[in-house]
Simulated assay, not measured.
Amino acid sequence: MIVTIDGPAGAGKSSAARRLARRLGFRFLDTGAMYRAVALAGKRAGVDWDQPEELAAVAASLTLELSNDAILMNGEDVTAAIRTLEITTLTQHAADNQAVRRLLTDQQRAFAAGQDVVTEGRDQATVVFPGAQCKIFLTAGEEERARRRFLDLQARGEEVDLAEVLRKQRLRDQCDTERAYGGLAKASDSIEVLTDGLNPDQVVDRLAEIVQGVQSHSGIGSN
């Protein structure tokens, strides 16, 4: 069974999807981490961000390995390195690169083949897994999403300004929704979950309830 969780930046998709996968006993596919890793590799390689073919070549040279808690890039654990504000900003270059998106889409489908998976991102229900049995669109208010991101960055030891986090989030939202290929969109058969006012446990409870409802209604279970 494939469960997709899409939504805007700061909605809490990664943490909620990871915890949901643990509760269900499914594998977790953090697609955002894959794009972040490509951006990190591009920065290290000194690519010209205005030359998308350079980043595509870097992406094609990478071996990405994902587990529920970590991502390895060519054998190096980059789980923490990809979460800085700088890499978050640069990730847009990977997300906007059609060659990179096609490459990572193929890798995501290979990861999920024959598996029970909870996957999160922007285009999981619309592009990567349009036939997924359970589709969820996780969202929150703009200021709430920025506040969460601000607190997360502070916890990682970064000196950040809430207004700047909000400004960059608005730019990212605009790029995500206007992207020609793989842009953020709610699938017509996705179930929307607004997380404002919910703590992490309540969010996962709600998501698990949705998945179990789909399983019961459809008569499907895990593989």
Rank of each mutant, 00 (worst) to 15 (best):
R206V: 08
K135H: 02
T79V: 05
E178C: 11
Q98R: 07
D50I: 01
R149K: 13
L162P: 13
I2H: 00
Y35P: 08
Y35L: 04
F129R: 04
E158T: 02
E53H: 10
L55R: 05
T126G: 07
Y181C: 08
D123T: 07
F28D: 02
H93A: 15
E192Q: 11
V38D: 04
L85K: 11
E178P: 00
V47E: 03
V47R: 09
P130E: 06
L24N: 03
A95T: 10
P130K: 05
E144H: 03
H93L: 15
L138I: 07
R147S: 09
A70Q: 15
K13G: 05
R36K: 07
L198W: 03
K135E: 09
A110G: 12
T79P: 08
R19V: 09
A17C: 01
P130H: 00
G183S: 07
L55C: 03
G219P: 13
T4R: 08
G182F: 00
V58N: 10
D123W: 06
G42Q: 12
T105L: 15
N68L: 13
L194F: 10
E159G: 14
E76C: 05
R170K: 11
C134Y: 02
F111N: 10
V128G: 13
S216H: 09
A33Q: 02
A113I: 01
G141M: 07
V165T: 08
G121R: 03
L72F: 12
E144D: 13
A70P: 02
V193K: 01
A187M: 02
P52M: 02
R18N: 10
G131D: 07
A132P: 01
R22K: 14
D196Y: 08
D6E: 14
I2N: 14
D50E: 15
A155L: 04
D96W: 13
E178H: 14
G182H: 08
V3Y: 00
L64N: 10
L90N: 04
L40Y: 08
P130R: 13
R44D: 09
Q202E: 15
A187P: 00
Q51M: 09
G10N: 09
V118G: 03
F137T: 08
H93R: 12
G7K: 01
